[in-house]
């Protein structure tokens, strides 16, 4: 009996020791950021095309709920996420989409939103989280837990350095994938 208690203690200690840096810690680090701007380069590898589609532009984020993706090349496009609504401006046309009407879109958007705000609950609502690497070079893999989303999406890999996300990679269920690399723009205060 004593030996069993000791074993449990030992196990507990082991867990705390390795948990010096874990998902909670990462989420805490991420949550510190209240906003920022970054450049992005997005490469889409689609089976139907011979070459990847490359686009680039700027991302900006204002905590907690506003995210803007401004594509500058090859064609200007502005996508704004404000709370529950996605606004798209493209070729002089505007349209909006209420996210709550599309569960799969919500899952996609929550992966970004959850990561940027360090909201573990939000992420775990749709995904199982697997964290690997070190604080200086981590990878957070999101695996969809909902079968409806799994039909579209295999996984999302978010890579980062400390409190900064450096790339997001979507693996779609049909084999296509999208990689977005992010480099911060130092804004003078």
């Amino acid at each position: 009996m004593k030996r069993l208690a000791a074993l449990i203690c030992l196990l507990c200690l082991a867990t705390t020791a390795s948990a010096a840096w874990d998902v909670n810690q990462l989420m805490n680090d991420l949550a510190q950021k209240t906003g920022g701007r970054a450049r992005f380069v997005e490469k889409q590898y689609l089976a139907v095309l011979d070459k990847p589609l490359v686009s680039s532009g700027e991302l900006s984020y204002t905590a907690p709920n506003r995210l803007e993706k401004r594509t500058l090349s090859p064609k200007p496009e502005l996508i704004t996420l404000d709370d529950d609504t996605l606004y798209v401006e493209r070729g002089g046309k505007k349209f909006s989409l209420r996210l709550s009407s599309r569960p799969e879109a919500v899952a996609f958007v929550d992966s970004i939103r959850g990561t940027l705000t360090g909201n573990r609950k939000l992420l775990e609502a749709s995904y199982a989280l697997i964290l690997t690497g070190t604080q200086a070079n981590w990878t957070l893999r999101l695996l969809p837990s909902d079968s409806e989303i799994a039909v579209l999406l295999r996984s999302i890999d978010i890579r980062g350095v400390r409190d900064r996300v450096t790339s997001v990679e979507y693996q779609l269920a049909d084999g296509d994938r999208t990689v977005m690399t992010i480099t911060p723009v130092e804004t003078s205060p």
Partner: peptide, 18 residues
């Protein structure tokens, strides 16, 4: 159409493109 693939409706379009 290829441009549109990169947009939010791209997911729907991809299958129809060929």
């Amino acid at each position: 159409s290829i441009d549109m693939l990169a947009s939010p409706v791209g997911v729907l379009l991809k299958k129809l493109l060929p």
